[in-house]
Design a protein around this nucleic acid. Structure first.
Ligand SMILES: NC(=O)c1ccc[n+]([C@@H]2O[C@H](COP(=O)([O-])OP(=O)(O)OC[C@H]3O[C@@H](n4cnc5c(N)ncnc54)[C@H](O)[C@@H]3O)[C@@H](O)[C@H]2O)c1
Ligand SMILES: NC(=O)c1ccc[n+]([C@@H]2O[C@H](COP(=O)([O-])OP(=O)(O)OC[C@H]3O[C@@H](n4cnc5c(N)ncnc54)[C@H](O)[C@@H]3O)[C@@H](O)[C@H]2O)c1
Lengths: 256, 256
DNA sequence: AATATATTGATATAAATATATCCATATGAA
DNA sequence: TTCATATGGATATATTTATATCAATATATT
């Protein structure tokens, strides 16, 4: 805290005058003939992997914040998640935050930046359709509220379930969906109906005005271009697990 | 079926004598100094993305089989999953199957190959630890049996739950786990306890002899090197969904 | 029989993603 | 003060993954 407003007094070379570009840019590698992309620079979108990593940073940052930490270095974030520090720095750059050398990033600022970047800065409300095994579990789970998602209503077509309460949530008839959506300005839906009903139900959700569907069924949904779907396929993870286990046991068998 | 044993009679150039390498190989690009990798060729492992795609092929193949189809082309598999046909062909090559030009792949053979490749050719039995909201849903779900997984027993530490039946499965005390594992030669466990209990419970599972943990908690587990863990993090998918929705709505706003 | 066509498997190229390297900078230690 | 060090940001390189291209081939068509 000695001299706060000194700014690179020591740097002698004029080369240091170059402006620091915050967000990485893509340099044209091949002969770019697309007339749309005439500029020599183009803003690079974050990779899918980057977007997937952000929530894990967020979670750790919240813990650090609760623990009273004001700053955290990318190195620390990296080591916890077994990532290379460069990856973390690059990921964070996409959110627009700037760290300070030797210090790191301001925890609070970083949390806000990631939340803003992912659209989690104000809680997104959602409906859930299909209050069965999985649907009930998701309904009763409030962990997603840390990730910008709050399920506020649920729908089913089983007469036995309609108007009953499940996990503190009244089950509505699916027929009520359009009116509810229109009234509440909700854009996100969670789909947990059986596979056979998935496509048809998704269409009703879209007609009702939903713009995003978090799809837990095994069906690849066909939806209009303005609707985003995200399929959560547990079989994928299971495949990775099985494959890795095979590999490990094979490796051990060779070693022994 | 005219002349079965003709082998490239028409090919005149000696260049065509080159043997057809079935599985793709990696060509050394950079100056490879690692003495372990002196050979100019090395068997390429399937990418993680490839492993994740295989279950979706499998699912479609089963439907085709049930429908009486004997052959299927990579092109068809690709179009259903909105993938480029090359990707499918490459993915399938890893399983060791060979297709025939103009015909495609034999459905039954392909199913068997994928199952073998993923270690799903004989049903893997598993235990589930933490019979709460999510655990119960998974217990009651028999869809994983299509993907080589069968949950055969469940464990909890809540005295109120022990010895009750949930979804047709008797809840055992966690203390019983080691003996059960040893008796039944099970190697896989599903972890659905609260985050706070995750690491400790995982350790008990490992001590009991499990070699793989399908982890549904938000905790990154620390386990010995011979144990494989697969973390299922729904927040990742939610992040992708949120990010895409932001992008779409931004794009539409610009267009309008 | 000759030709056209869909398809596979191999190879080549491109694109995306991860990693290495370097410099500037803020802090603490000598 | 001077120096060493950890760190962020930029750029360069390497690696991984996806896509394009093409010869070979099995079937259908003319
Ligand atoms: N349970 C799991 O652990 C699990 C795991 C992975 C994937 N899934 C998938 O999640 C989906 C639901 O699984 P589940 O085990 O909860 O099934 P479930 O049968 O327990 O629940 C389905 C619910 O949807 C309702 N429903 C059926 N048709 C409907 C329609 N047309 N409109 C509205 N509601 C309708 C049913 O009344 C029921 O309440 C399935 O597609 C399944 O493949 C489940
Ligand atoms: N419910 C969901 O939809 C959902 C979604 C994503 C992730 N998760 C994660 O799954 C886990 C479980 O969630 P849930 O909603 O089912 O919670 P839950 O509280 O309903 O269930 C937890 C179960 O674990 C048992 N348990 C607690 N400590 C234990 C221990 N030491 N040993 C054995 N059993 C123990 C409890 O008795 C309870 O039955 C959590 O880590 C949660 O973050 C849940």
């Amino acid at each position: 805290m000695k001299n706060k407003n000194k700014k690179t007094v020591m740097s002698p070379a004029p080369s240091s005058v170059q402006k620091r570009k915050l967000i990485p840019k893509k340099t044209i590698t091949s002969i770019e003939k697309n007339p749309e992309k005439l500029e020599s620079e183009e803003v690079v979108k974050p990779s899918l992997s980057c977007v997937r990593r952000l929530p894990s940073y967020l979670q750790l940052l919240r813990a650090l914040q609760a623990d009273g930490h004001e700053y955290v270095s990318g190195t620390v974030l990296a080591s916890v998640h077994h990532l290379a520090p460069v990856i973390v720095r690059k990921d964070l750059a996409f959110t627009g935050v700037t760290g300070t050398p030797r210090i790191g990033f301001q925890v609070t600022e970083l949390i806000a930046a990631i939340e803003r970047f992912l659209g989690w800065d104000n809680q997104n409300k959602a409906v859930l359709v299909g209050v069965g095994n999985l649907g009930s579990a998701l309904l009763g789970y409030h962990g997603f509220e840390n990730f910008g998602l709050q399920i506020v209503a649920c729908f089913d077509n089983d007469p036995m379930k309609i108007d009953t309460w499940i996990r503190g949530c009244k089950v509505h008839s699916l027929d009520q969906l359009p009116r509810f959506i229109r009234r509440s300005h909700i854009v996100l839906g969670v789909l947990t109906v059986p596979a056979e009903a998935a496509q048809k139900t998704a269409e009703r959700m879209v007609e009702s005005g939903l713009l995003g569907i978090w799809n837990f069924t095994s069906v690849k949904l066909a939806v209009p271009a303005n609707v985003v779907t995200q399929k959560e396929d547990l079989a994928e993870g299971l495949a990775v697990l099985s494959h890795r286990m095979q590999h490990v046991s094979k490796t051990l068998a060779i070693q022994q």
